[in-house]
Design a protein around this nucleic acid. Structure first.
Lengths: 227, 227
DNA sequence: CGCCTGTTTGATCAGAGTCAAAAAGTGTGG
DNA sequence: CCACACTTTTTGACTCTGATCAAACAGGCG
């Protein structure tokens, strides 16, 4: 299926937004879209990977697996995010769909050619890469000396910020994009510990739950000074 | 002090190595070198930062501090590494010298101008940024479900790789660039736990110690299949 | 309705943290 | 070269948090 940039949901925020209308069209002709359903694998670690992609809708996770198959989530990817290490011929981590997702896929060779012609695209990717790096370090610092409950609180806050439309203020109410198990795997905790932490946070009056996925931040300040 | 690219120890590996001789000279004229002694702060989190830098010799750490002042090391920077988020006006983390270090410093504005003129420099920074991201995720996956001993083993392996001249094989013997406390702070453990882990690894015959900082990997394979 | 997946809660246990002190290094000045 | 002070590392005893094992509970969907 060929691309329809005109109706693209991330046409203003994705990396290719820095291109002119016509340049973008030219790039689009080299690409195609792909749908993934929950659990489908986009990249598997260690495979040669010859494509890169922009996420249009849905959400992806970047994971690694330790010796005994335990999964660790290293990053979440939201719409307009870019996937693919342009300088490494092999993927180092798995990339898997968390929900039904739609992507815009390019051969690395085509993207490489576009980068050659459009330095502004290079700049857009650099910016994204530095943001990814920043988020990755956030996740690292979450795991620090803090108690399990503080870690979960910090993650909730981070997810609220990701769910928010405005970049600085967290959303007051939002739906968790991930399961308890996936939260646990982002923090290196167990499902049970995450569940208990959420229960405690609710009993303390810091948050309120709305079904299993809905979260309302009653007292965001309390979460904020954990960071 | 003006720059002497001719005698620069990282002239072939730093980002600016992608420039031609004359372009590099031009950039060099805008920069200056700076010396830091152990513990000196290059950037403090939250400050406006108007410069970026390449590390020539020594080592730096990137750290964050939680509410009670506990430090967490998010990354190490080795010679030829680049420091400075080009797209964010404020530094988000502290950057501190681990040892006596020498840097090559540029005003962001000058670097920005150079990026404008030399897309290959942009590409070099993107590559570096993706490598940083990769290292950051390595550190994340180290912390996973693994025992303290395995985490320390994994860190030793990573440090051996960083110390090695060849990029894939770890050095068999090397000097730890950081103290026990700093190792602990990279993994989110305590000094005592790190110390005990190292003692156990030696008793198992996986490593041998040579003074407090020297490490010999007797059985690297055992460490490798922990990852 | 019953099955399956995901979540919550409970009881027990082990591993890492904490507190404390000895030992090994490092550097300084006499 | 040695004596002394200071920092870093190691080791020990005890505690407590989070993992583990197990079971009840809640939704979603055929």
């Amino acid at each position: 299926m060929t691309l329809e940039c005109a109706t693209c949901p991330v046409r203003d925020s994705a990396a290719c937004a820095v291109l002119s209308e016509e340049d973008r069209e030219k790039l689009a002709r080299a690409g195609r879209t792909r749908e993934l359903s929950r659990g489908e694998v986009l990249f598997a670690a260690g495979e040669a990977d010859t494509v890169c992609a922009t996420l249009l809708t849905g959400a992806l996770k970047v994971t690694s697996h330790d010796a005994d198959g335990h999964e660790r989530i290293l990053a979440l990817i939201h719409p307009s995010g870019f996937i693919g290490e342009m300088f490494s011929p092999f993927t180092s981590h798995d990339v898997v769909a968390l929900t039904k997702s739609r992507l815009c896929i390019f051969a690395k060779a085509d993207m490489e050619a576009a980068l050659e012609r459009h330095p502004e695209l290079l700049r857009a990717l650099l910016r994204r890469s530095q943001e990814d790096l920043h988020r990755s370090r956030m996740l690292l610092s979450l795991g620090s000396g803090r108690s399990a409950q503080d870690q979960v609180g910090g993650l909730l806050l981070a997810l609220a910020q990701a769910a928010s439309t405005s970049p600085c203020h967290p959303a007051r109410t939002f739906e968790l994009p991930i399961t308890r198990g996936e939260m646990a795997s982002m923090l290196g905790l167990t499902i049970e510990t995450v569940s208990r932490a959420i229960t405690t946070l609710e009993r303390e009056g810091t948050i309120r739950r709305n079904g299993t996925r809905g979260i309302e931040l009653v007292d965001p300040a309390r979460l904020e000074d954990l960071v």
